[in-house]
Nucleic acid binder design. Structure first.
Lengths: 193, 193
DNA sequence: GTAGACTGTTGACATTTGTCAACATTTTAT
DNA sequence: ATAAAATGTTGACAAATGTCAACAGTCTAC
C-alpha cells in the first residue's frame, strides 16, 4: 500500500514518530488521485483547492507570460508537495499551471483539512513548520544562485544538487527552471566543467 | 515604548488578538539591541544566534562570491525579520553578511526561546506559520520575476511593489538585489516606462 | 506502421547586460 | 575644514545570452 510512504515521510521530519492512531487521523483527511503524463493538476485562473503529496511521478509548476512563453517555477518528484500556496490559502485564482511530467499518484488535502489537522495534531503542525523552514532555505539558495551566477554555474550547481532531476525532466524544462533558453542550456552542457 | 510595535504586528497576523498576559510572556523571550549604520548584525562564518525583529531602521543580507563581489539576497525595514534561517536552525556557520543600512533598533530572539514560545503559546506558533506562508509566496513571486523578466521590468515591478525601498536603500544595493549591476540599473531608470 | 508531436543540437546574428574607466556629487569621519 | 568614502551617471567596448531557422532522432497516438 502506497499510503505508508507518507507515513515514512512524516516520520523522517517529525521530532518523534507518528503513531499508527495519529496516522489514521492524518490519512482520513487525504484523498487519492492519479494523473496521466501531460494532464493538468492546476490551470491558470483556477483556485488551487488541494495540495498534492506526490507518491509517484513528477510534476512542474510554470507561468505563461504575456508573450505566451512558459517559465518553470518549480519541479517536483516523489515525496514533494505540489500546489500554489497563494491561491490555496487566499482563495485567489492562480497565475500558474501545474501539470504531470510523468504518470502520477497523488494524495490530496484541502486547506480546511490541513487547518483541522494542525489543530488536532500539534505534531502535524510542527511538521509543516519544519517543511516550510527547509523550503525557505532551499529557495534562498536558489535566489542567491540565480542573481549571482552564470548559466553554466547555475546548471552545474543544479546538476550536483539534484542529479535525479536530470533523468526525470526534459532539458527544455530544466532550462526554463534555470531561467535560460534550451539552446543556451544545450551549449553550456557541451562545455567541460 | 517601542515594544508595543511588536504587539501590534503580532495582532495583525494572529487569528485572535494577543492578550496582555501572552504578550508579557512573548516579551520576556526577547532582548533589545541597537545597531549603527554599517555595523554588522551577522558576518560570514558566524552562527546566527538570533533573529531580529526590526523596530526601526533598514538592513540587508548579502553574499560575497569568490571574486569578492557582493550579491544582496534580502532587504529589510521596520516590522520585518532579519536573520539566516539555515544557520539559525542548523547551527551552521553562515555564508551571509547582514548589516545595517540605517541606524537600527532591534528585538532579538534565540532559537531556543522561539521553540519554547511556540510550545507555550500555540498562537505564536500559528503566527510563525503564517509568516512563513507569506514569505514563501513573496519569494515565489520574486523567483518568477527573476527568471522571466528583463532588468527594466524587474525594476519597475520592484518599484511598484516596494516604493518605500527606493527611498531607503542606495541604488547599487537595489541593483544587486535585482541581480543586475548599478550601471544597468542607472540606464534602465533613465528609460521611460 | 505512419504522421505528427516532442526533444535536442547547431549556426548566424541580434540584443541585453556586464566591465572598466572617468567623472561629479554627496555624505562621512576626523 | 578637509580628505576620504560612498553614490550615481555616462561612454566605449566586451561577453553572455536570446532569437530564429534548420535539422535529426525519438516518442506517441491512432
Amino acid at each position: 500500500m502506497l499510503m505508508h510512504q507518507l507515513h515514512n515521510y512524516l516520520n523522517a521530519y517529525a521530532s518523534n514518530p507518528v503513531t499508527e492512531e495519529d496516522f489514521e487521523i492524518i490519512k482520513s483527511h487525504f484523498t487519492n488521485k492519479t494523473l496521466r503524463k501531460r494532464q493538468y493538476f492546476l490551470e491558470e485562473g483556477e483556485i488551487c483547492k488541494h495540495f498534492a503529496f506526490i507518491i509517484k511521478g513528477a510534476m512542474r509548476k510554470y507561468h505563461v507570460d504575456d508573450q505566451g512563453k512558459e517559465h518553470v517555477v518549480d519541479l517536483y518528484i516523489e515525496n514533494w508537495w505540489a500546489g500554489d500556496l497563494e491561491s490555496y490559502v487566499m482563495l485567489k485564482p492562480s497565475i500558474y499551471y501545474i501539470d504531470a511530467c510523468e504518470d502520477c499518484e497523488l494524495m490530496l488535502i484541502t486547506n480546511e483539512s490541513k487547518i483541522k489537522l494542525c489543530s488536532q495534531l500539534p505534531s502535524f503542525n510542527q511538521f509543516l513548520l519544519k517543511l516550510d523552514e527547509r523550503n525557505h532555505i532551499a529557495t534562498q539558495k536558489r535566489i542567491t544562485s540565480t542573481i549571482s551566477s552564470s548559466a553554466k554555474v547555475r546548471y552545474d550547481d543544479f546538476a550536483s544538487c539534484y542529479p535525479e532531476f536530470l533523468q526525470r525532466f526534459p532539458q527544455h524544462v530544466i532550462a526554463s527552471y534555470l531561467g535560460i533558453t534550451k539552446e543556451t542550456l544545450s551549449r553550456v552542457r557541451s562545455q567541460v566543467s
